[in-house]
């Protein structure tokens, strides 16, 4: 599903060049739930940005479904992204000016899903997430857990093949964190590939495999459980 080979990502700021990812090789199969762990600044988020096609690699290759996409134009990457990837962030990143319903609906506007279909899908998801009663509220009116559930709903509304979650429970208490992890596990159980960055060993163990990073490199890969 996702394969990166000898991937290098460097940032140039003024006179300092920082190597965020240094010859990283990762192979993620379809249906896997991979947790990425490591201390701050080890390159986890950069890896997520590259995997999410938000950033392009400096060197190396990125194969998505067998196609090299690391060096495509922004427009083509955006096209692949909106049809295949869903994102969940630590800080939820909902749009404050849009209601719960509209936030979840947003990705479908970009993939040109017809209005009736959009309504159906959003309502179904909100029901599943137990926030249907909040559909006309704005993000600031929700609790953190509710916001993150909205964010997950938004991430999966286009039925992405892969969900990239960057510390999805970082801003949540343990009960809400558990809820989110359960939702992710259920999605994974239904076949969605999940790549999740986390600081929490507890959350990491929801995955099949844990990748540990340090100074821009992958140091160990542990299989937690064999995925089905």
């Amino acid at each position: 599903m996702i394969k990166i080979e000898n991937l290098i990502k460097t940032y140039q700021t003024d006179e300092v060049e920082t190597t965020a990812l240094n010859k990283v090789n990762i192979d993620i199969k379809q249906g896997e739930f991979v947790s990425v762990m490591g201390p701050s600044g080890c390159g986890k988020s950069t890896l997520m940005n590259v995997l999410g096609m938000i950033d392009s690699p400096t060197q190396g290759n990125y194969y998505f479904n067998g196609e090299e996409i690391g060096h495509l134009s922004e427009r083509k990457r955006s096209d692949i992204r909106k049809h295949n990837l869903g994102f969940v962030f630590q800080s939820f990143n909902l749009i404050d000016e849009l209601t719960v319903f509209e936030n979840v609906e947003l990705p479908m506007l970009y993939t040109k899903v017809p209005s009736s279909e959009r309504k159906k899908r959003v309502e179904e998801l909100l029901k599943n997430m137990n926030i249907m009663h909040r559909k006309n509220h704005f993000p600031q009116q929700l609790s953190g857990g509710q916001q993150q559930r909205v964010a997950v709903a938004r991430a999966i509304v286009n039925n992405p093949k892969v969900i990239l979650a960057d510390e999805p429970t970082g801003n949540l208490d343990s009960a809400n964190g558990d809820d989110v992890m359960k939702i992710l596990s259920e999605l994974n159980a239904k076949g969605t590939t999940i790549v999740m960055v986390t600081h929490s060993q507890y959350c990491a163990e929801f995955g099949n495999r844990i990748i540990r990073m340090l100074d821009g490199q992958v140091v160990t890969e542990n299989v937690v459980k064999q995925y089905l």
Partner: peptide, 16 residues
């Protein structure tokens, strides 16, 4: 820029 970023992430093109 936050809002713009989110919209881009969920698939908005520059023209949109």
């Amino acid at each position: 820029s936050k809002e713009v970023g989110i919209r881009k992430v969920v698939g908005a093109t520059r023209q949109q």
